[in-house]
């Protein structure tokens, strides 16, 4: 997504070797830290070749790669419904959406690569079960209405989370998020439309829509991450201008939006404790099952094994394509070189 680690041409040849190397390293570190602190204070952007603290790089790499993995795994619950979509139009829409998720994964892998991690390593970590991705994709999509609920609630929560990330202090991440957010709004609207149509359909269809909303509501709220008092990394991420709002803040905003929208749908949220707190001016919701969240994140959700198995299968099935394309490219390059030589 970014100018990658392009070869830069040193402006001046290395100066005379004054002072010992250790002193110089320490001085460079100090200068780098000062520059980094200034960028943070000005709310400006860090670019791939800039000096950055090791922990900042590590945090970003973890966040961006997990985000990329989520997009890639996130294709599965919906891809499984492409062949079962109720009309040609819905099928085309679903295919476009799944293709977008693949694209979003690729934008994010590119951004992560600028931090010095190879894409193959990230892929390997994912299929080996070493990398995390959003817990939401480990829940099953049981009916067609789930396509609606996923678009409306899951993509809705994702947008809420991602819009502030467009201003993340790391340039390549912010740029990837701008592109993703532009494309994501169609995802939420198409989901809303599916639910609206079902809600205005037969009683059985309406029931199906309500059931899907009931099942996806709590997992969608948990997408914002653990409560603020149980989210140790949040503070640092906010100090680094990666994260702009706390988990609970974003969750509360999201609940407020859903309260409005669910009325238009003619459905209800499965939460009797949703209310607007006049004192704090914030939306509140009922308790969430954080034990379940931790279980799913730890790999023990309903579909974790299935999702990883499918990812592994797809990767292995595609091996011959990657090999053939590489072999063809090598052959063409050789031919080209021979022709050049002969000429």
């Amino acid at each position: 997504m970014a100018s990658q680690n392009l070869q830069s041409v040193p402006d001046q040849p290395a100066g005379p070797g004054a002072g010992d190397a250790q002193d110089q390293t320490a001085q460079l570190e100090a200068e780098g830290q000062a520059y980094f602190d200034r960028v943070m204070a000005e709310d400006s952007r860090i670019e791939p070749k800039d000096w950055m603290p090791a922990a900042y790089r590590k945090t970003l790499l973890r966040q961006i790669s997990q985000h990329a993995h989520s997009e890639i795994i996130g294709m599965q619950p919906e891809a499984n419904w492409i062949s079962r979509a109720p009309s040609l139009k819905r099928k085309a829409i679903l295919m476009a959406k799944v293709q977008d998720e693949a694209g979003h994964g690729l934008y994010l892998y590119s951004a992560a690569e600028t931090l010095g991690q190879s894409r193959d390593k990230m892929m390997d970590d994912l299929i080996a079960g070493k990398a995390r991705y959003s817990s939401i994709f480990n829940y099953p999509a049981l009916t067609w209405a789930d396509m609606g609920a996923i678009g409306w609630l899951v993509d809705g929560a994702a947008i809420c989370n991602q819009v502030p990330l467009c201003r993340a202090s790391y340039g390549p991440y912010g740029r990837a998020m701008v592109r993703i957010c532009k494309e994501e709004s169609f995802h939420q609207r198409q989901g809303f439309e599916i639910l609206l149509e079902l809600s205005n359909g037969t009683p059985a269809q309406k029931q199906m829509a309500q059931d899907a909303v009931n099942r996806w509501y709590a997992p969608a709220l948990m997408m914002f991450g653990p409560p603020d008092d149980d989210s140790p990394n949040s503070k640092q991420s906010m100090a680094w201008n990666i994260k702009r709002f706390s988990n609970d803040e974003l969750r509360s905003r999201f609940v407020g939006m859903m309260v409005e929208q669910v009325r238009v749908l003619g459905l209800t949220l499965p939460d009797s404790e949703v209310r607007f707190n006049e004192e704090t001016k914030k939306w509140e919701h009922g308790p969430l099952d954080w034990e379940e969240f931790k279980e799913v994140l730890a790999g023990r959700g309903p579909c974790n094994a299935q999702r990883l198995e499918r990812r592994r299968e797809a990767h292995d099935d595609g091996a011959w394509v990657r090999e053939a394309a590489a072999a063809y490219a090598a052959k063409q390059a050789r031919k080209h070189a021979e022709k050049e030589f002969a000429a």
């Binding site: 079960g129 099953p140 790999g299 023990r300 990883l308």
Partner: peptide, 26 residues
Amino acid sequence: EVPASSAGAVESTAAKVPAGPETSSE
């Protein structure tokens, strides 16, 4: 999409997702 367990329930007794085969050609 239908998981082996009952729909939506978190299967807390299920084994942890095994790491990928270390010896895989990939």
